[in-house]
Design a protein around this nucleic acid. Structure first.
Lengths: 173, 173
DNA sequence: GTTTCATTGTTAGGTTGTCTAACTATTAAT
DNA sequence: ATTAATAGTTAGACAACCTAACAATGAAAC
C-alpha cells in the first residue's frame, strides 16, 4: 500500500498562492495545480543544488545523463545528437562538450563510420559522479511510484499526459 | 467523469527512454516517471516559447507573474521581495526590474513608508500581455483537474507531494 | 541628537552560456 | 569531377547572472 499521504484530502498544508480559481472554483482543483507548481519549483531547486555540487550548468547535466543512458545501450551519440536533444546549436554543443571533457566527465572519440562526426562518451568518472549524486533521489522517486496501486498509477499517468497536452497544444492562440 | 485517457493502462505510446527500472522493475512505474519527465520537458519548452513571444527571460516572466499576483491582492512588492522569491541577488533584481520597466511591463513607484525601498507594480500592459499569453493554457489545465473525481485529485495530490518530498529531502547523501 | 549599524537599491566589472557567421573536413549526389 | 549537404570548430557579440563597492535611508545605542 502506498505510504504517500495526501496533503489535500488528508493533511493540513494548503498549497498556497499563485493559482486562484477562474470563477467560484473548486478549491481542491486549485490545490492540485499549486502542488504541481511546487513540484516544479522543487525540481528547479534540486537542479540548482546539483549544478552547484558538480560545478556544471543546467544543460551540461542533462547532456551527461543522455550520455550515460546511451552508454547503457551501447549507443553512440554525436555532438549533433546532443545539440538536437538539448535544443542548442552545434556551436553551443561543441563548447558544452568542451566543458564536459575539461571536467573529465566525457571523452571525444572518433566516430566509427563517419569521419566528420565525433562520438561523445561518458567517462567512468562522469558515470560515478552522476549516479552518486542522483541515485538516492531516483530511488526515492521510484519507490513512491512503485508503492502505488495500478489504478493510482493510471490516474497519475492520465493526469500527467493531460497536463503535457495542455502545455503542448500551443499556448498563445 | 474525466475525459483524460490513460496512456498507460489505456493507450499505446510507452513513455520512452531515460528512466529504466532499478532491477527487474514494474514497467508501468517507470512509465509514470517518464511521463513526469515529459511533463517537465513540455513545461520547459512552453516557457521557451513564451520567452520568445514576449522577448523576456525566464525569471522575468516569473517575476511578472508574482507582480500580477500581488496586484490582485493589493500587495506591494519590493525589489528585495522579488530577489528573494527568484533566488537572485539584489543587483540582479535591480537590472531585472530595469528590463521589465524598459519593456513597459512594470513600473517603479515610491514605497509607502520606507524611502529606501522601491515598490514595483505591474502595468496594465504587463497584465494584459501575460493573461493573453497564458490564459488558454491555464484554462486547459484547470479544466483537466476540475473534471477529475475527488479521489483522483487526492491520488494526484499525494503523488505530487511525495515527489516533491523526494526531491527536497536533500538529494546527495 | 549624534553616532553607529543594518537594510535597500544602484553601479561597475567579470563570468558563463548561449547565439550567428565564417571556416574546415568529410560525405553524398549529379 | 564538381557541387551540395552535413559535422564540427572558432571568433565575436550579447544577455543575465554574479561579487564588490557604494549611496541613501532607517533603526538603535548612547
Amino acid at each position: 500500500m502506498p505510504e504517500v499521504k495526501s496533503s489535500v484530502s488528508g493533511g493540513g498544508e494548503r498549497a498556497s498562492g499563485y493559482w486562484y480559481g477562474p470563477d467560484g472554483s473548486d478549491a481542491s482543483a486549485v490545490d492540485v495545480l499549486n502542488l504541481l507548481r511546487r513540484y516544479r519549483e522543487a525540481e528547479t531547486a534540486m537542479r540548482g543544488r546539483v549544478r552547484g555540487d558538480m560545478g556544471m550548468g543546467e544543460k551540461d547535466i542533462v547532456a551527461l545523463r543522455y550520455l550515460l543512458e546511451a552508454r547503457t545501450r551501447n549507443a553512440v551519440l554525436r555532438q549533433k545528437d546532443l545539440a538536437a536533444r538539448l535544443d542548442i546549436t552545434n556551436a553551443s554543443a561543441s563548447s558544452l562538450v568542451d566543458r564536459l571533457v575539461r571536467h573529465g566527465f566525457a571523452r571525444r572519440v572518433p566516430h566509427p563510420g563517419d569521419r566528420r562526426s565525433v562520438a561523445v562518451e561518458a567517462t567512468d568518472q562522469g558515470d560515478r559522479e552522476v549516479r552518486e549524486t542522483l541515485r538516492n533521489m531516483h530511488d526515492r522517486m521510484y519507490q513512491v511510484v512503485n508503492e502505488m496501486s495500478p489504478d493510482e498509477r493510471a490516474t497519475v499517468a492520465a493526469f500527467l499526459s493531460a497536463m503535457t497536452r495542455s502545455l503542448t497544444d500551443r499556448c498563445p492562440e
